Amino acid sequence: MFGWIKRRRPAERTLRLRSRGEFGDATRVAFEALAPDVDTFLGQAAYLQLGYFETLGELIATTPELAHKEALSRAAGAALTKHQEIVALIRERGDDPTALMLPFREPLDAFRVATRGRRPQETMLAVHITAGMLDDFYDALSGSYGEIGARVARILQSDDDRQAIVTLIAQAMTLDPELHSLLAMWGRRLVGDTLLIARGALREHILDVAEEEQMEPVFTELLAAHSRRMGAIGFTA
């Protein structure tokens, strides 16, 4: 569905699922030689956060209620801060952030379009669900990159201020109970596109059976965390 441009990667790398937020301490799964090179990792991670900032900015511009604008602005500000901190790390390494992000602009913009809803609440839910899943996934990837990865993990684990979005969604469903089933179905539909982005972030090659088995526990954890996010809003995944 989405094309990815990959760069040459170092010879050895291990991808580990790190324990954070909604992931259990017992989960430690390694992907052998599947993590992309560090430039790909940083470019994708930086552009994803910029995309969430842009989507939330569009919501702010079209939302009439001042209180709603303020709530959305907190989540937008958190995404922008994460983007800026990853960009600062890229520059610190002597690289050009624009050059690293550019290969992923088209596929990640397509992903944002595919997950934008017809109603503001659908788009809010899309940001909450997809950003949560991909923050988890890129946090898992970060274990492959030593100190650079550890710094990215700290950035991704910082407060995302998306609880304000959950509150707005809950308020909207209170005013219009029919939204509940619609948004629940929308939340479930988001999973497929989001997992495609996660799989596309890995080193590009045809996976063998052993590698598929290594990946399965990580994606199981991503889906479990997604179910908990949905449950916290009152949906079933």
Rank of each mutant, 00 (worst) to 15 (best):
V113I: 14
E70Q: 11
I86E: 03
R74T: 06
E65C: 06
G57P: 00
G94L: 12
A88Y: 00
A61E: 13
A67Y: 10
P97W: 01
L108T: 06
Q84W: 04
E65H: 12
P97N: 01
K82Q: 08
Y52P: 02
P64V: 12
G77W: 13
D95K: 15
L72C: 06
A67L: 15
E70D: 08
T63L: 03
I86D: 03
F104S: 05
P64N: 11
E65I: 09
E85R: 15
E85Y: 09
R74H: 11
L80D: 07
R74A: 08
L102P: 02
E54L: 14
I90D: 00
L89N: 01
G57H: 01
E65S: 09
A67R: 15
R91V: 03
R112P: 04
F111T: 04
K69C: 08
L56N: 05
D109K: 09
M101V: 06
E92R: 03
A67M: 12
L102D: 10
L72H: 04
V87L: 06
K82F: 03
I60F: 13
E92S: 01
D96P: 02
L66N: 06
E106C: 09
K82T: 05
Y52C: 03
L108G: 05
A61K: 13
A67P: 04
G51Q: 10
G94W: 13
L102M: 10
L72M: 14
T98A: 12
G57Y: 00
E92F: 00
V113H: 13
F53V: 00
F104K: 07
K82Y: 02
H68C: 06
S73T: 05
D109S: 09
A99D: 06
E106Q: 13
F104D: 04
R112I: 10
G51F: 05
P107G: 04
A114K: 09
R112Y: 11
T55D: 04
I90N: 01
K69G: 08
R105M: 13
H83Y: 11
T55R: 15
I86H: 02
Y52R: 03
F53P: 00
A67N: 10
V113Q: 12
E54I: 15
P97T: 00
A61I: 11
T98Q: 11
L100E: 04
I86C: 04
L80S: 05
R105W: 14
T55K: 11
Q84K: 09
I90C: 00
A75P: 06
K69R: 15
A75Y: 06
M101Y: 06
P97Y: 00
M101H: 07
G57Q: 00
T63R: 02
L100Y: 07
P103D: 08
H83R: 03
F53Y: 07
A78P: 08
A61R: 15
T98S: 09
S73H: 10
R91P: 01
A110I: 03
A76Y: 00
L108R: 05
A114T: 03
L89Q: 02
V113M: 11
S73A: 14
H68S: 12
P107I: 08
D95Q: 14
Q84V: 02
G94N: 08
P103W: 14
A78T: 11
D95E: 13
L72F: 09
L89P: 02
T62N: 07
T62F: 11
A71K: 13
S73G: 05
A99H: 07
G57T: 01
T55M: 13
